[in-house]
Design a protein around this nucleic acid. Sequence first.
DNA 1: CCTCCCCAGGTAAGCGCTTTCCCGGGCAAC
DNA 2: GTTGCCCGGGAAAGCGCTTACCTGGGGAGG
Lengths: 330, 330
Amino acid sequence: MATLDDVARRAGVSTATASRIINGSSKPVSAALRDRVEAAVADLHYVPNAHARQLAGSGRTAVGVVVHDVSDPYFAEITRGLQRVATTDGRLVIICNTYRDPARELDYVELLRAHQVAAMVLAGSGYHDAAFARSLRGKLRAYELSGGRVAVIGRHDRAGDAVVPDNEAGGFMAGEHLYALGHREIGVIAGPRNLTTTTDRLTGIRRAARTHGRPAPKVVYADFDRDSGAAATGDLLSAHPRLTAIAALNDSMAVGALAFLRDVDRRVSVIGFDDMPIARDVTPALTTIRLPLADMGAQAMSLALSPASPDPRVERVPASLVERASTFPP
Amino acid sequence: MATLDDVARRAGVSTATASRIINGSSKPVSAALRDRVEAAVADLHYVPNAHARQLAGSGRTAVGVVVHDVSDPYFAEITRGLQRVATTDGRLVIICNTYRDPARELDYVELLRAHQVAAMVLAGSGYHDAAFARSLRGKLRAYELSGGRVAVIGRHDRAGDAVVPDNEAGGFMAGEHLYALGHREIGVIAGPRNLTTTTDRLTGIRRAARTHGRPAPKVVYADFDRDSGAAATGDLLSAHPRLTAIAALNDSMAVGALAFLRDVDRRVSVIGFDDMPIARDVTPALTTIRLPLADMGAQAMSLALSPASPDPRVERVPASLVERASTFPP
DNA sequence: CCTCCCCAGGTAAGCGCTTTCCCGGGCAAC
DNA sequence: GTTGCCCGGGAAAGCGCTTACCTGGGGAGG
């Protein structure tokens, strides 16, 4: 590849001058030299080496994002928000998928640190895993000590800038909605046990049950994806045939539940969580607990991009009920 | 941040030795030194600077991916496939969203080149834009000349490694399906005019019309997203009230069409294109032309990661009809 | 006409690594 | 007892940039 040296030589100037022209430095340069350098750049298809540039100390420019899985609509929406503000700020975004593997998350934090990103945002639930939490905390602290910025979405285990959706309240609203409809016994399709999002939402639903003096909901664990949601519905219904309503802890699983119910031709209320874009288009349209996903992403990126503040900023994001056609009285 | 120098000093060795130990070089090193260096690394939370490393010439490791929009299910699926093989190969993936802006695409190609990626894959339709094509070709050529690898998905305007879905045949199948069902006049919700994917699919549908001796389909252009699909359906139906079937050139728009039809309570056949994951869960379940999106992504990444071959490899991907509930006789 | 200052432009010192080449010491072979 | 090798380890040369610092020449002021 052509280097700055090549450009400078071809234009008959020093690399310093070439560099200044290419970067629009504030130092004045005569028009003649500028033209020559620009011509050389064009002729050579020259593109400055980003690594060399970064090494030479022209400020960190990229930002990192760690999500569970971009192709999951939940994260896709969040990512959309993240990207929007990062792009506005003229930054390259490096997206990393952990596929919900804590070890991979740790690796990615290292990798992002190695790439000297200016900031990183960790989106997606934390894990119930003390060793993991400790290790992550250590790496993050080291990163921040070296001037890095970090913001998280939905992890309360960490002191620092964060955007935290009110999962507990959302869970409560879901339960309340179902009980208010007249359901007495409800089932819950939970996400992976080791995720804090799962526990938070579940806690909310259980509180609703207590508040309404109903028996504790029947819980079965799945993987936050459609197919496991469908399978879990089968399990739930065969173990507890009298269930009249099911709360799924995210929309993907709710969609799976709907599919299963359609197949076996049973009429059971289903409520989801997140309100991902297609929730309104499935059959029946999904009642769900809405979280402003794209906004959450945007907020998190804004936090990460703004200078560190002495006391951590925590943006609480309220959940809200969106009633559609998938819930009804028993 | 701690540097290799810090580590070496703390361990009482030269940077050369520290580097060898950290990178697991083949050069033998005594166990004692190894332990000391490893301890220093842990104490200092040392992470090698990826830029310095890359500059010093330890081979390109990252790969770049340019898509229209990761949060679009179409690209989300493709990306899933891309990531799968890239990760297996131990590579960092940099994802760039163009939001269908050719200028942005050009910028990202430069950026990826600046970051010295080992390979890049361009996913998503090409544009009908000669100036753009020329410019892109120039940049890509310069990149390849410097040893970079590139693979594209679905662009026949470029000679080189490519994965190309048979959009024309898919369009034909969609039309044929509708005509076989007995529809005489059909409407088409097309994507943006400047995308080659749009034209290819449209060409297929028109050929089906000719083959069946039917009038040319009524075409209206939208943006490949749900809401524009819904709006386009309204336009189509008010302009041509006698239409009994609609072919949408992607699933998102088909979902929008379904929503519109539901709202106005009209029964019109709808066929989509792509078979994105939720196609089976909407109401009615969407008949569509299936493309193995994740596989296409995986294939493209494999091509990009394999050494360049003298003659371009082109993997043709067949489309197939998936019949569900959204299409029926008039 | 000389001095001083200012400014366009160049020189060169790193940034944090990898890697080639070199060095010195210990051992086997003669 | 020499000579010659091999092998663990270090010195140092870059990789492609940015930027602080220096330089030389022209214009203004005396």
